Computed example of a mutant assay.
Amino acid sequence: MRGAVMMDKSAMSVNKSQVARRFAQAHHSYLQHAVIQQQICQQLVRLMQSHLTSRKLGRVFEIGCGTGALTRALEQHFQVQQLLLNDLYPEVQQQLFSTSRTEWWIGDAEQIAFPEQLDMLISSSALQWMQNLQQLFAKIAHALKPSGYLCFSSFGPDNLKEIKALTGQGLDYFSLPELRRCLESQGFEIVYLSETVKTLAFEHPRQVLQHLKATGVTGTASGHRWTKHSLQQFYQAYRQFSRLNVAGQQEYLLSYHPIYCIARSTG
């Protein structure tokens, strides 16, 4: 392994089987409610259009394809010769149209063997679930051809900060500088790296919880059980994250902190 930057987040103890179960349960509601995640996919592909020299791609491997928002955006704007798709749970295969150009690689991306000689690896809103990102980047670097591209979006420390502040539940996200160091330690050249914060507004805190459940983002809520009393406490405490909209009505905010990256293998 190149470099000495340690990026092991195993202490956060992500239960991958629970994550898979929560996303599988939210599979049919995800498309309707995951507005931010779909916007992120579109933005990632726009960045790829701006920073890649060719619209023709050979072998492309996607980690965490989910309902296929990134997959469809990629195929709309690029010519892909072979598409290899990964996710934790097999139900995703029902949502995406498979062709002779498509192969499925179901399982935990940190555990399964990767296809080799890849021209590109892509991922959107999935890498934040990885427990040892440096090890995964080393695995990706090995799977990519020389000068192959790694194009992904993940989330930064301010992601869902309101939920973590009130419940203590959430992931330990990597900051942009940490991601840069981790990528460079594995021999990647950073082509593009940026971050932003997007905010959703809801009429009531219960809708915040419904939104999270509908998008499967409750995969870290290990052992957390709501009671009538704790819900009321949560609703009351969430007022600190509210504001008045232009109509003078109170709305409750939820933050997303996407990070976008395009990197090139130098191996």
Rank of each mutant, 00 (worst) to 15 (best):
A263Q: 07
S125V: 05
I122N: 02
F78H: 02
E203I: 07
A11G: 14
Q82L: 03
C182A: 11
R239W: 11
S10P: 10
P115I: 01
N159D: 05
Q249E: 10
R21C: 15
Q49T: 05
H77I: 02
L231A: 11
V208T: 09
S125H: 02
E184W: 00
M6P: 00
S154N: 12
Q43L: 00
R55W: 00
E178F: 08
Q128W: 02
R2M: 13
Q117Y: 05
R2N: 11
S124T: 09
L83T: 12
L121M: 08
V19H: 05
Y173W: 04
A247N: 11
E195Q: 13
K145P: 04
D87N: 09
L166G: 05
F152M: 15
I140Y: 00
E91H: 15
V35D: 13
K228E: 10
H51V: 05
Q232G: 11
M1Q: 05
R101G: 04
Q38M: 14
A165D: 12
K161V: 06
D8M: 08
S29D: 03
N15H: 13
S54H: 10
L254T: 06
Q111W: 07
G64T: 09
L96V: 12
S147V: 10
F137K: 11
L96C: 11
V5R: 05
M1L: 07
Y260M: 12
A4L: 15
Y30A: 05
F78V: 06
E162D: 13
S100L: 09
G267V: 15
G219M: 04
I190T: 03
E195C: 03
S154D: 12
A165L: 12
N245M: 02
V19T: 14
L44H: 08
H33C: 00
L74G: 02
S123Y: 01
S230N: 14
R72A: 03
V60Q: 07
R180Y: 00
P157M: 00
V60S: 04
A109E: 00
W105G: 06
C151Y: 03
R181G: 10
Y30P: 04
F155Q: 01
A263R: 08
L254V: 07
V19G: 07
I106Y: 00
M1Y: 04
A113N: 09
Q42I: 06
E195D: 14
A69T: 09
H224T: 08
A221Y: 14
T218Q: 13
Q81H: 13
A69V: 08
N86K: 05
A141W: 09
R46I: 11
Q117I: 10
R181H: 12
Q210A: 06
S185A: 15
D158A: 03
Y173A: 07
L88Q: 02
F155L: 13
H28W: 12
G64A: 11
A26I: 11
S13E: 12
P146C: 13
M1W: 01
Q249R: 12
S154R: 15
G156N: 00
V45S: 06
Q81E: 12
S154L: 13
L193Y: 02
L83R: 15
Q240A: 01
I106W: 00
S242I: 04
K164D: 13
